Simulated assay, not measured.
Amino acid sequence: MDQWAGKVALVTGASSGIGAETAKLLAKGGMKVIAVARRLENLKELAASIKSEFNVQIYPIKCDVQQEEEILKVFKWAEEELGGVDVLINNAGVVVNKPIIEGATEDFRKIIDVNVIAMAICSRELVQSVKKRNARGYIFNINSIAGHYADLITMPISVYAASKYAVTGMTASLRNEIINAKLDIKITSISPGMVQTEMIEKAFESLGDVQTLLEGVPILKDKDIADLVIYGLSTPRNAQICEVIITPHEAIAPKNPRPFSNQ
Rank of each mutant, 00 (worst) to 15 (best):
H148G: 01
R124P: 01
V244W: 12
Q263T: 10
E69D: 14
V11P: 07
I111N: 00
D222N: 13
A120H: 12
N134E: 11
S49H: 09
K44V: 05
A35Y: 15
I142E: 00
L43G: 04
R237Q: 13
V85G: 07
K110E: 04
E80H: 11
V85E: 09
T22A: 04
I89H: 11
P60M: 11
N141D: 07
Q263S: 11
P259Y: 03
Y165K: 08
F108D: 00
I252R: 15
N262M: 04
S163T: 02
D107P: 00
F54V: 09
L207F: 15
L126H: 13
V167Y: 10
M194T: 05
Q3F: 13
Q263A: 10
G29W: 03
K223N: 11
E45C: 08
N262A: 02
E205L: 07
V56D: 00
M31Q: 06
T12R: 03
P192C: 13
V116N: 00
V33F: 00
I34K: 00
G137D: 11
T171P: 04
E53V: 09
D209G: 06
K7F: 14
V210G: 01
I71N: 08
A181I: 05
I139P: 05
S206C: 09
Y138V: 14
E243K: 14
G19N: 07
A203K: 02
I117Q: 02
I34G: 00
H148W: 14
W77N: 03
Q57N: 12
R175S: 09
I112N: 01
G193I: 05
I245H: 15
A37L: 14
V65F: 07
A120G: 03
G84R: 15
Q3H: 12
E215T: 06
G6H: 10
F140H: 00
N90G: 04
K7W: 15
